[in-house]
Write a protein that binds this DNA or RNA. Sequence first.
DNA 1: ACTCATATTATGTGCAGACATAATAACGGG
DNA 2: CCCGTTATTATGTCTGCACATAATATGAGT
Lengths: 231, 231
Amino acid sequence: MTEAIRTWQGVMEEVRRRIHARDWPPGALIPNEADLAAEFGVARATVNRALRTLAEAGLLDRRRKAGTRVALQPVAKATLDIPVLRLEVEARGKEYGYRRLARTEALPPDDIATAMQTGDTPLLHIRALHLAGDAPYALEDRWINPGVIAAARDEPFTRISANEWLLAHAPYTHGEIGFSATNARAPEAAELGCATGSALFVLDRLTWDHARTITRVAIFYAPGHRMRTGL
Amino acid sequence: MTEAIRTWQGVMEEVRRRIHARDWPPGALIPNEADLAAEFGVARATVNRALRTLAEAGLLDRRRKAGTRVALQPVAKATLDIPVLRLEVEARGKEYGYRRLARTEALPPDDIATAMQTGDTPLLHIRALHLAGDAPYALEDRWINPGVIAAARDEPFTRISANEWLLAHAPYTHGEIGFSATNARAPEAAELGCATGSALFVLDRLTWDHARTITRVAIFYAPGHRMRTGL
DNA sequence: ACTCATATTATGTGCAGACATAATAACGGG
DNA sequence: CCCGTTATTATGTCTGCACATAATATGAGT
């Protein structure tokens, strides 16, 4: 017998080891919390914490009464941290720069109006460039609902980006985020300083305050951008 | 006084409400666990669970002795579920199809060899197409280290994709995942049935078994693919 | 003033016991 | 044999208490 397991991390590691070693193969039902607690000589709450964490990571499936089993198809869960663009640039050791390109109040295109459920009210439209050193880093194309965030009407967004201003002034209750790839059209190519047709990584986000949409933004990253995380 | 808070979810909601209502503005130090527990009439462990969950979500910053404060720049954490391609297709209500395009044992290009740290040993190379209905859904380009997964040498991968086979036969301890965009070169365009130069969304993954690399894969999604999640 | 040891404090985690809840299994009546 | 009710079981969570740990604040000694 090796040294005893004392912490929930210890229990988690041991369970992970057994899964990995195929002691408990994919799909297998593992002992219940009380039994494991007895085996490891810890409280049930400790085992619970360990198994719950593994379940959140997608390695286990748990159901009341049915018990805990090893996930058949462990869906990899990638947690991406999406910081403010300024911090993202600074984390790469580059100097951050910002340039507002346009600020208008206009009727958004149909797809935006539909997504934001704003009907045919005009919205605030901001287009801005984020720089890393001298090179364009990302292009921000944003629509803001001034009906919800009235203060945005008084903000020029020349020195502070909408990206950061909204974080400080418009908390959201929930949102949706999407990732895709698109070919650069002429305006994006000109603004990002790349060839027309270049493949751009796009992040789009729609945020809500309860039932009302606050803002919808698309971030076009300069060619070659890669977003990464551990598993 | 409204109804009492009983559960950790209840505490979490109330804390979230106070942050959102600016009772506790960004950067503010909030009361300690013991005080909150007394205020809400619950045990400290309950408050701890609530605050810990909010901290994991990026809404709070916690440090021992220093206390808990509202995050200044709430880094949005997007958790992406990356299921097996077959399930991804089936979840869209389409019929899944699979076609192996190539299977060779060869020396990988330099960047792959470097990433996998396999020196100049030959690796198993699989290229396969995943279909949704009749349309190409994604192209899989995979390198497998047979030094770690010897059984892969005996598997033709004609009926079952490497994507699924590895999940069942090669558990990993950790990995890295990346997202980017790239222009389709001639082979990808031909295999995916799209124009050369189309912007493709690419997911790449490198998995390890302790210190040894198992496999590195790139998934090229057909044009227009969008990966989405809530916030 | 400055330095280093010591006290204090907030979070992190463990334990034992209890009850809640969801889902399955067992059972009994028709 | 089918169907609805009831018992059983494993997880989910709460409580109250204890001690561990990390980080800051304090203060003694030079």
